[in-house]
Design a binder for these strands. Sequence first.
DNA 1: TGCCCGCCCCTTTTT
DNA 2: GGGGCGGGCA
Length: 920
Amino acid sequence: MNFGSTGEMAMSSVSAPLRGDYGGVQISLKDLADKLNSKQQEAVFLQWGPSLVIAGAGSGKTTVLTRRVAYLLSQLQQAPHSILAVTFTNKAAAEMRARLEKLVGTIVAKQLSIGTFHSICARLLRYDIESYISPEGFRWKSNFVIYDETESMSLIKEAIKKLNFDDKVFIPKEMRHAISAFKNDGKSSAQCARDAREYRDLRVSEIFTAYQQLLAKNNALDFDDLILTFTNLLAQNAEVRNKYRNRYKNLLVDEFQDTNQSQYRMIRLLSADEPFQSSAEERQRLWEGRSLMVVGDVDQSIYSWRKADFRIILGFQKDFKDSTMIKLEDNYRSNETILDAANSIIKNNSERIDKVLRCNRGKGDKIQCHAGSDEIDEAFFVVNELKRLKARGIALKKCAILYRTNSMSRAIEEILVRSHVPYTMAGGTRFYERAEIKDAISYLKLVYNGADGQAFLRCINNPRRGIGDTSLEKVSAFASQNGMTMLEAANRADSVGGLSAKAAKGLRDFALLVERWQNMTAALSVSDQLEMIMKQSGYLPKLEEEANSSKEEIAQDRVDNVKELLAVAKEFDSSADEPTLEAFLTRISLVSDLDAIKSGADAVTLMTLHSAKGLEFENVFLMGLEEGLFPHFRSFEAVPLLEEERRLMYVGVTRAEERLYLTWARRRSSFAGAGGTGTGNYTLVSRFLTEINPELLSGFEEPEAFYREPGVNNNGRGRGYEEGFGDKRSRFGDRENSSGGGYGSRSNGSGGYQEPSGYRDNDYSRGSGGSSGYGSGSSGGKYGSTTSGGSRYPQSNGAGSKGYTPAGQQRSGSTSPFVAGPSNSKPGPISSQQAKPRVLSRKTGDTTPQPIDPPVRDAIVNTNFEKLKSGDRVLHSKFGTGTVTQVIGDGDKELYQVEFATVSGQRVLDPRFAKLVKLD
DNA sequence: TGCCCGCCCCTTTTT
DNA sequence: GGGGCGGGCA
């Protein structure tokens, strides 16, 4: 494949549509080309036909896409409704729309179809799904609902149960995953049944079929169905296919590297008749008046777990023979240091399109690295750097904290809250996943689609209507016997045998209530409906009563959340183009919390690396750079998985414009982290960090050297954290210079510290012994990797990583000058115990110079805990809320006596260690 | 029917 | 270490 050529410019000339069709957008070529480089211009000014734009990180991809749309409108005189732009997230869609509004005006922009694959498919299916019959013979009605993971999971369970399969053998979660994978590959259950060769495959296909049947029965689709169903519909129904083909003559697809087979098939079906076999002339005729532009970057493909397949992008030119390829390699986002780091990381991957990011900016600061002693310490480092940046006049909203897994947000959040640094977070406890929100939405879903059994079950006895599981089973059986929905069966509760009078009445009353709401749908706005339903159902009164009577604050939160949903509905009523219940439910089903990030307030942004794709920040903190966490231990199994992790690292690094911080914790106490079995595992720094040219880094040493730091660190940290970068750099530079011989004297001067490379060794052996650490050795174990022996590294990391060796193996312990350390630490066999005395010695006020871990925490904790006074209300992570009853001591040694409602008696807490958050 | 206890699994990443 | 779910008991 020749990725070097840029191909032909045009396939044909413009054929002008009727005047006015294109909304009268007039933008001159000069304006369209303004500030674009030649490659960008080339992409914007392409004529008809298919094209592939390889757009490196920060290469102005979104600008090209929006200008391209403007060009289609103004120069190729395309009608706004002929343009379909597909993005990967709702947020990206919103941003593209906003930028287009500025470019071509609100009225025209409103007529453009911009959205995610899911939202576009959901919208189009509303019109045409009734003409669709699935390969299994199932049908849906236009008022289908979209099932989220939980709802789809209960259907999976139901399917397994219905088939009398053992859910220990066919684990629902695995089944759901398998079915999702099939769907993303474009496979129906009928196809799976045909393809099945083994017993298990066949059973899985049966579960798949049963699941689809249940979905149809509930008139529901899951996320994957949205795309697959629409794609199948296009393939199946020529009339529908032609309708959309004639309408959407100009397709643009962003983040094309994250497209899966099902999505790609949809694009092909929409774009032009199979161009694969035809002659060049035929193809030219087919593409006359049509265009397709896909934009992507293989190096940023991070969704293979969702069956995204970046090989699609590699094969695009084969599938679309006449496609033009343009590479955008000029990066306008990051400084040279950051780009060099990004390039040095990604070059370790084998499967890529050759591409180099060229820098258009200055060198910039070195990348700041920091090893925290644990995740709290790591978080403190980040927060203190944030504060320092802020003090230098840098707005918090220009900063982002990125991490591999959502669970990592807890530590940093805690410190942010405690330090009064405002933040916004994507993900975490999701609003739409809260029980009360799902309850409220279920009521709406049931009103909208009476067939929705999941919604029915969620609402029927909530609030209590005296209808228990036994009664519901009878209703359910009656419903399926008579081909009814649960709601219909409830309406005929009298005919259902064996119900108590109370249950029967409850069911009937409920059915009537829902019916009444259904009749009022057309007359009321969404928010009015929701408000009415919440009141008349007794749901909101119940919550309010709980909030009033219960001492739990959570009860009040529930009320507030429902009111928040009401506010969302009100906002929707006033802003949506089509403020219908249907549109509201569709939107709610497809939003993610990523979309909710506010850009107004000055707050630091917290999100996962995945969520960060497509965004940019002046200052980026990348946390948790530890083997097992990032790269995640699940990726150790195979090279392609590891390469995806590396791409994720590449994405993270290239988010930064000016400053990049890379941090990790030498010990992580969360359950996850190093993939261990629980508390306090020692970690290894991520291999990705070692892949970066050391000259670009400040504060990073090869792992075995970490533990020689004490002398240096004491000096440095004695001066606290309120110093500039320059200081730090020189400090580390110092150490670099002295590496080789200077440690001996240094250690004497500082009292030294037990060389701990041994305990790391020891930690390994514990790890491989199976009790802790990752790669627990057992091949069948949940966390078992392909790791063998004492090495925690997979055997398969040959693909480009620089032969990284764990520190403990490189240096086997006793050659270090530190071994002959202070008298209070014994040389010789090193046990894991020795990790602990470091902390203990601190507490006893030992005057010997401190090892590296505690001073970090202390230096920061001392200066940052919040001064409390008697009467203050505080929140403790474990004991809940309480009131300060007494302040003991003063200054940095203040202790607080706190009375907690949940814990009998009072407790004296040291604010330096206890996590106390003042409640305002 | 509702509550409580104990167990199990969890922590990739998202539409 | 914790949350969610299921089973058993009041």
